[in-house]
Design a protein around this nucleic acid. Structure first.
Length: 260
DNA sequence: ATGGTCGCGCAGCGA
């Protein structure tokens, strides 16, 4: 079973062509999308349906927006946090059961600048994600996939010096993701490429950063151990970042023996 | 060269 995550940076016409073309080539079974920037009524569910994918979308229109596509079933969808607290103002989380896996598509707030109100929101949001996972917990494997806007280690940066004092790399942000690992989720891509640098999932559009290999690894697939132990391989599909009108993120996919 | 490019939506902000 192939599980993918991709921050697509809006579902423009050109971007939809890319996504559909990528589905045809990569043949993922489950896809978590972020930054659809679509309303729920504007989400092109029929395009995905025609390719054999059921879908759930949680959107707000101009900004954010997350979705899950699945061709191995899609049940019990939940939009946003399931912790019983007041709903988040922004559409950044959607959860569903696909192929026996409880899958969440997450778009963690960017944080804007260290100390900014949006930075505090980011830290609160990551803490609340853990509460959500605990509240949503049921027996069986879990996969939390998406744009975490956190580079977990300096090896996930093209240049650690370039990010001193910036968001995405602070101890507080990294600790917030470590808390998810303490809860029992594993960064399965990094497990397969221990100590290997230069493996990025996002590149700034500006200044030729992509051809110059100036990127960050901020998109993650976190899996519960029962699933992480069954991973066969993982790949960031850098080819999908090439050419005209790309997203600024590349898709990450993980192949796993399906749960028993 | 301390900027650069996108998307949204029609100015300028957010990433």
């Amino acid at each position: 079973m192939r599980i993918a995550t991709w921050n697509v940076n809006a579902l423009t016409v050109e971007r939809m062509d890319r996504i559909v073309g990528w589905l045809d080539i990569a043949q993922p079974d489950i896809v978590c999308l972020q930054e659809t920037k679509a309303s729920d009524t504007g989400f092109p569910a029929m395009v995905f349906h025609a390719r054999g994918y059921a879908s759930v979308h949680h959107g707000e229109g101009r900004w954010n927006g997350v979705a899950i596509l699945s061709r191995v079933g899609l049940d019990d969808p939940v939009s946003g946090f399931a912790d019983g607290e007041p709903p988040d103002d922004e559409a950044r989380l959607v959860t569903a059961t696909c192929g026996g896996v409880r899958v969440s598509s997450v778009y963690v707030p960017n944080g804007r600048a260290v100390g900014h109100e949006q930075f505090r929101y980011k830290l609160r949001w990551l803490a609340r994600l853990r509460s959500h996972l605990q509240a949503d917990a049921a027996p069986g494997p879990v996969a939390v996939c998406g744009d975490f806007n956190v580079a977990r280690d300096d090896i996930d940066l093209w240049s650690p010096a370039a990010f001193v004092g910036d968001t995405h790399v602070t101890p507080e942000e990294r600790a917030a993701v470590d808390e998810l690992e303490a809860y029992g989720l594993r960064d399965v891509f990094r497990e397969r490429y221990t100590g290997v640098g230069g493996l990025f999932s996002w590149w700034d559009y500006r200044a030729g950063n992509f051809p110059n290999h100036k990127g960050m690894r901020i998109d993650l697939v976190l899996m519960s151990s029962d699933l992480a132990d069954r991973v066969r391989w993982a790949l960031i599909d850098r080819n999908a970042r090439k050419g005209s009108k790309p997203s600024d993120h590349a898709p990450l996919f993980v192949d796993v023996d399906p749960p028993a």
